[in-house]
Computed example of a mutant assay.
Amino acid sequence: MNHRVLPYRVPRDDAFKAESWRLVTGDVEAPMSDALSGWDYQLDLHLRRTVSLDLDRVRSESGLPDDCSVLLVAVWTATGSNLRGPGCRVALTGGGWTTATLDVDLRGADLGGTLLLDTAVVLAERREGARPSSPRRAGSVLWSDRKTLRLQGDAPMFPMAVIDFALTSFPEAAAWHLQISGTLENAAMGSLLLLVNEKNAVTTAAFTNAGDPRPTDRIVLSAVYADTARVMMEHALAQDEFVDEAEFPDDSLGATFLALFDRIFPGRSIADVRLQRAHSPSLFASELQAAVKIFEGR
């Protein structure tokens, strides 16, 4: 955590004791690691953390009155979706050592990339007539820390929707379709959408079980991953502006394509791969299939 210099008094760090975040699945709790494998946009998250603090010290060392109320809050940010929101808030009253638990429920559809979890103790209400050296505005941060969770899994890392292909222009018997829209400068989260045909029971079951996939589900997810990687690369290589020296905004469609290209074709130039796809599309497809390790460890 970066040390911030605030324009008001704050308590020392030893007035707080924060336990690690835990991942809650049913009745089971497990320590949250740095990365969560097997995650996809269908998997919601329930996270829990316990924080203890000496309220008397928090108030006195901040120059606050003994009856001043403070809040323990959690705020989440997802870098993949560029979404941010409140996770939980607990009002803290009384004095002495107090323990509070934060329970944060997050929709998988709102997440992606790296999940940032900010925990903070803040002033609950604005204080009129407060001394300049003490916090006065509601929301003034008295203490905070940040933890990160990298989300990764077998399913493609972009939003998806389950629909009936019979009601669309897509082939009714197709299992899935990757929809790509916008330019390479557009945000990837708004440009990529994986559509799954609800009439295809095998595919829909695989995504439903993505958090704890069966052997059959792993095969289906691997096939979807390989196919979406192929579609993305073919789409990228068809764009004239997709070249080795190109620079795209962070989290843009172009940046996503460049990152995927570097993973699939490390050490090769875009011009070389584009030429191979034009003259030997079957070899291009086979090399991509080998690079994503289809059906291996999924």
Rank of each mutant, 00 (worst) to 15 (best):
I219W: 09
A229K: 01
R277E: 04
M189L: 00
S140G: 11
A238K: 08
D54F: 04
C88W: 07
M232T: 11
G26S: 12
L142D: 08
E172C: 06
A290Q: 06
D262N: 08
T79I: 09
V122I: 12
W76G: 02
N2S: 10
I294A: 05
L283Y: 03
W76I: 03
A290I: 06
T98G: 04
N186Y: 00
W97D: 12
K147E: 12
G113M: 04
A100S: 12
Y225G: 11
A18Q: 14
G96M: 13
W76S: 02
L123T: 03
P86C: 04
T99C: 08
I219S: 06
L142T: 05
K199M: 12
S133M: 10
A161G: 05
A35F: 02
L6D: 03
D227A: 11
L178Q: 13
A205T: 15
P65E: 04
F284W: 01
F16G: 04
L283N: 05
S286Q: 13
D217P: 03
R127L: 14
D262V: 10
D262F: 09
E125G: 07
H3M: 05
E198I: 09
W143G: 04
D67F: 02
T25Y: 12
R277K: 08
E185W: 00
Q179I: 06
A205E: 13
W21H: 12
E61G: 07
S181A: 04
S69A: 07
Y225A: 15
G96E: 10
V51A: 08
A35W: 02
M189W: 07
E245Y: 02
D40A: 12
D14R: 13
S140T: 10
P132W: 13
Q276Y: 00
Y41L: 08
V24E: 14
A238D: 09
M160H: 15
A138H: 06
L142E: 09
D34I: 02
L83R: 12
A15P: 03
F165V: 13
A246T: 09
R218F: 01
L195P: 10
L195Q: 15
S62V: 00
D227M: 02
T25E: 15
T203H: 05
K199L: 11
T208P: 00
Q42S: 14
A229E: 03
R126A: 10
G63I: 03
A18S: 14
W76E: 03
E172R: 09
F242K: 04
W176H: 13
S280C: 03
V73C: 14
D34P: 01
R48V: 14
V220P: 05
A259T: 08
F265E: 02
F257H: 10
D272A: 09
R298E: 03
F16N: 01
R136C: 11
L53I: 11
L221M: 15
P156R: 12
G129E: 06
H3Y: 08
L6N: 01
W21A: 08
E172S: 10
C88G: 05
A15V: 13
V162T: 14
V58S: 05
E29G: 05
